[in-house]
Design a protein around this nucleic acid. Structure first.
Length: 779
DNA sequence: GATCCTCGAGTTCA
DNA sequence: CTCGAGGATC
């Protein structure tokens, strides 16, 4: 058991260290929430043991000493910090203390967001900005006048009239989120210093010794109070003071409000909390100040904070926890992704135990190791991520993490392509993990949509060998499922339903078989997407379905022909061709069809295909070394067919007009038996396609032909997918993100960043009512 | 070769 | 939602 004195000493050392890093080095090592927790613990211990309080305890001051590079500025009136409240009860206590002392029935408060930036003090003499300083330790700060002069939000001369001879204004310098992102993007591209977060960005920028650098940083400012006032008067309430400051030319948060009593405060807290993620700047809470000056004077101060104000903090979006181990997961395509298994911790309202580490490069960048104390962030509803490691707490004897060399599931070698970020298990479909993920993907809603066949079932079916590939799903019977359940119960030692209720539960199995049966009727797009071919996602599957229209046709096409579809290039075409070249895959497709899968929308290829159905284009698509578009045209006009090229001697290529290096390269390419075969197959496919592809006939023009539409936010009358289908039927192309090429954005309920971007770009925006009216009109 | 857009793939919790 | 990378375009 540690003594209070020892614990106090320990806390002081940790806090001092954190302070130094936060204020002087601008390299925080622990999250704010952790700092607050430590400070409170120390405060409580010191309250319980007043004899142990010393003058240099972190509880006795506000920040830390200046770094020394800038001149010191003594604040005429100290810049104090605020007490914190973390719960409704603590806010109630705060209000009750004031009510008890002032003996008033109603209390008015000024409430405002608490920006996550850097507190500063600005001194104006005769209406002119003469000096600006950081808070420093509250009593003495640093003279950063030159840097502050570069911040455009700070007035160099006061507007209006009636200002005091000497006026000190206090406020927060911060970096707007959007500007922070833009700045970092630029820094990443040009090798500049990437800022950790907007707060760090603001602090670091103000502490630049060269004001020209500060001038390039996107800093902003909000005023929230005053310091010394001489030769003049300010209104005797906080809200009126803010109004006066705004009139003199200071930016004041438009979110400031005057509210009444504890209910008004808590209501304000919740309203701001809901908008937190949408605000253009980071905040870590809200601040309540008793509005009237007389009340403030009566309440007075405790050692380091006013009794008439408090900061009500939001739940932390960053937390610290211990990483137990780094595990890896094998995805559908074999991608091996590391993830962190951690001690459960509360962040942003949920308990987090796992977080992705993305890939091996990310692990190396962070240098996270087993046993490390890590900082976890979960901003808004974003997926948790590991932000960094607290090196001070690293246990002794750890080693950097390394990607395993063998797949933890199948033991195959884990390899990485040249220059790629992801490592992959080379086991392909021999790897149970990849097989399992492939089946889950096949059954998923956007693919074959087998209702009720989720991860759990597929895992059992696959582990117990009831299902080896997607086609096996269509062999399953109710008896198979019941048998599987019996084996799972036996394996896990769970009590079977039969024993509990006395009869066999079969309804679930019947339902599942029925769902599998329903999925037999499908579309080409869903079927192709469901196969899980690398690089063939929803959008590519849809394009293939539209352009070729027939599974049997696609199955026998050699890969260069796939490049005729817009947005399909060499990489995607090869990947699809590689998939179709595997006899196992072709067999699986045959099995699926034999077991009753029906593709309902088979049709002839699109007439638009005809544009590229010629020998020259084929030769370009084959990606033959030194055979450019020009050379391909020459060959195509000299030879009638692919077969003719194969039979010709080299000098005929030269006669056709090719320079000798190009002719030789082509001949050498043809030497390879595989290439020769590919050329012949492609030539045949070309001829077949020319026969079955109809002439391009103009289709009845839809009202949205050629328009790119983005859907965002929630719709009441239908799902986003349904709305997308209806718009597509009218000729629109549905895109996932807003860009310059977007023609129209349909914004439903609670639309977020996409709506904002559309407004920024001046793109036409419809609400749901406009959408419905339009659909109605063109039904 | 650079740049801008998209698409694909992987991901967390209740 | 975010990253990485493929495709189109100049």
């Amino acid at each position: 058991m540690t003594t209070p004195a020892a614990r106090i000493a320990d806390l002081r050392r940790q806090l001092e260290d954190a302070n130094h890093r936060y204020h002087v080095l601008d390299e925080p090592n622990i999250p704010d929430a952790e700092y607050d927790r430590l400070l409170r613990e120390l405060d409580e211990l010191e309250t319980a043991h007043p004899e142990l309080v010393t003058a240099d305890s972190p509880t006795q001051r506000v920040g830390n000493a200046p770094a020394g590079k800038f001149a010191e500025v003594r604040h005429a009136i100290p810049m104090l910090s605020l007490g914190n409240a973390f719960s409704d009860e603590e806010v109630e206590d705060f209000v009750r203390r004031i009510a008890d002392k002032l003996k008033r029935p109603t209390l008015l408060f000024s409430a405002e967001p608490k920006l996550d930036g850097l507190a500063i003090s600005l001194r104006y003499e005769g209406g002119a900005f003469v000096q600006g300083a950081t808070r420093g330790d509250g009593a003495t700060g640093e003279d950063v006048t030159l840097n502050l002069r570069t911040v455009k939000a700070i007035p160099l001369k006061l507007r209006g009239k009636g200002w005091p001879d000497v006026l000190e204004v206090r406020g927060e310098v911060y970096m707007p989120r959007a500007d922070f992102e833009k700045y970092n993007e630029h820094a990443r591209l040009h090798g500049g210093k990437v800022l950790a977060n907007p707060r760090n960005g603001a602090a670091g920028s103000l502490r630049q010794l060269d004001p020209r650098i500060t001038a390039q940083r996107p800093l902003a400012f909000f005023a929230y109070g005053t310091g010394l006032v001489e030769g003049g008067e300010l209104p005797d309430s906080h809200s009126a003071t803010l109004k006066q400051l705004r009139a003199w030319g200071f930016p004041v948060s438009s979110l400031s409000e005057t509210v009444e009593g504890v209910d008004g405060l808590l209501d304000y807290y919740r309203r701001i909390g809901e908008r937190r993620d949408a605000l253009p700047f980071d905040i870590d809470g809200v601040v309540y100040k008793l509005d009237d000056g007389e009340g403030q004077r009566t309440m007075g101060f405790v050692s380091r904070a006013p009794r008439w104000a408090v900061a009500h903090k939001f739940p932390a979006q960053e937390q610290m926890t211990v990483l137990d181990s780094i595990e890896v997961n094998v995805g559908r395509t074999g991608a091996v992704t590391p993830w962190a298994l951690m001690q459960p911790v509360h962040v942003g309202g949920v308990t987090v135990t796992r977080a992705t580490l993305h890939n091996a490069d990310q692990v190396a960048r962070l240098d996270v190791r087993n046993g490390d104390t890590v900082i976890i962030r979960r901003a808004g509803d974003v997926i948790p991520e590991v932000v960094g490691v607290v090196l001070e707490r690293r246990p002794a004897g750890t080693q950097p993490w390394q990607m395993p060399t063998a797949c933890p599931v199948c033991g195959s070698e884990i390899v990485r392509e040249e220059g790629a970020a992801v490592w992959r298990c080379s086991g392909e479909l021999t790897c149970p993990a990849q097989r399992k993920e492939t089946i889950i993907h096949f059954a998923s809603r956007r693919a074959m949509d087998i209702e009720g066949l989720g991860e759990r079932f597929v895992e059992d079916l696959s582990d117990l060998d009831f299902v080896q590939n997607v086609a096996d799903l269509y062999k399953l019977t109710v008896e198979d499922l019941l048998e599987m359940k019996r084996r799972v119960d036996a394996r896990d030692g769970t009590t079977p339903e039969t024993v509990k209720s006395g009869k066999v539960a079969t309804k679930w199995a019947e339902n599942l078989i029925e769902a599998i049966d329903r999925s037999r009727q499908t579309t080409l797009e869903r079927f192709l997407f469901g196969l899980g071919i690398q690089h063939v996602g929803e959008s590519t599957a849809k394009a293939l379905a539209q352009w070729f229209g027939d599974l049997q046709l696609i199955r026998r096409l050699p890969w260069p022909l796939f490049k005729r579809v817009p947005d399909i290039g060499g990489e995607v075409a090869r990947s699809l061709g590689h998939f179709l070249d595997q006899p196992g895959n072709q067999q699986a497709i045959d099995d699926l069809l034999a077991r009753g899968v029906v593709i309902g929308d088979t049709h002839p290829p699109s007439g638009k295909l005809r544009a590229g159905l010629d020998l020259a284009t084929l030769l370009v698509d084959l990606e033959i070394p030194k055979v450019t578009r020009v050379r391909a045209e020459q060959l195509a006009s000299a030879f009638p067919s692919a077969q003719a090229l194969l039979d010709a001697p080299v000098h005929n290529f030269v006669t056709a007009g090719l320079p000798s290096d190009s002719a030789n390269a082509f001949a050498a390419w043809l030497e390879d038996e595989a290439n020769a075969q590919l050329l012949v197959r492609s030539g045949e496919a070309l001829e077949e396609l020319s026969k079955v592809t109809p002439e391009d006939v103009a289709i009845a023009a839809g009202p949205l032909d050629g328009k790119t539409v983005v859907l965002t936010g929630g719709l009441a009358a239908m799902s986003r997918d349904e709305a997308g289908e209806k718009l597509e039927a009218l000729g629109a192309k549905i895109a996932g993100s807003v860009s310059k090429k977007t023609h129209l954005v349909v914004a439903g309920e609670a639309a977020g960043s996409k709506l904002a971007k559309a407004q920024e770009l001046g793109i036409e925006i419809w609400d749901e009512a406009q959408l419905l009216a339009f659909l109605e009109q063109h039904a």
